[in-house]
Computed example of a mutant assay.
Amino acid sequence: MRHDPAAGALVVMLRGLRMYGMAQATEELTEQGAPAFEAAIPVLSQLLKAELAEREIRSIVYQKKAARFPAYKDLAGFDFSCADINEAMVRQLHGGTFIDHAENVVLIGGPGTGKSHIATALAMQAI
């Protein structure tokens, strides 16, 4: 039984792309020790990395489009000095740990205090 870390990485990427038949074939070719397959591993790895990156980019673009944000907002464009907002808390929320803990965020304030800007910036970061 042969074990090649590069071929193992190929199998992981193929399964991540839901290409289970190709992942099984990769395992079998690794077991056989086919020289032509071993020579092709670096090229296949690059192609799979490119596909994973492309799918991630398409997912981000789709999620932003589906969210229908009125405009792009981020925290770099927000002036904390003009608003009575706890900057440290907003920056902590920007890290996204509240999502991992399934916690809600409620922004309360009068008109023009930056609630929409902060909400959009948090959502953009989450995407």
Rank of each mutant, 00 (worst) to 15 (best):
D100W: 06
P111W: 02
G112K: 05
T113R: 03
A67G: 01
V105Q: 14
L48T: 02
S45T: 13
A34T: 09
I41C: 06
T97V: 12
P42V: 03
F78W: 02
H101D: 12
L107D: 12
N86G: 03
P35K: 05
K64Y: 11
V90M: 10
A40G: 01
G110T: 14
I41R: 09
Y62K: 01
L107P: 13
A50W: 05
L93Y: 04
A71T: 09
G114P: 04
L52G: 00
Y72A: 10
E56N: 12
H101M: 14
I41L: 12
A40F: 03
A67K: 00
E103P: 04
L48G: 03
Q63T: 12
G95T: 08
A39Q: 11
P42D: 03
F98G: 06
Y72C: 06
Y62C: 00
A119V: 10
N104M: 13
L48C: 06
C82S: 14
E87D: 08
F98A: 08
L48P: 00
A76Y: 02
A83G: 00
Y72G: 05
P42L: 13
P70I: 05
A102L: 15
G95F: 05
F78Y: 09
G96P: 08
F78V: 06
A39E: 15
F78E: 08
G33I: 06
A76W: 04
I99Q: 12
A53I: 07
A119D: 12
Q92G: 12
G112H: 10
V106A: 15
R68K: 08
Q92V: 09
Q92S: 15
H117Y: 13
V61P: 00
S59E: 11
G96L: 10
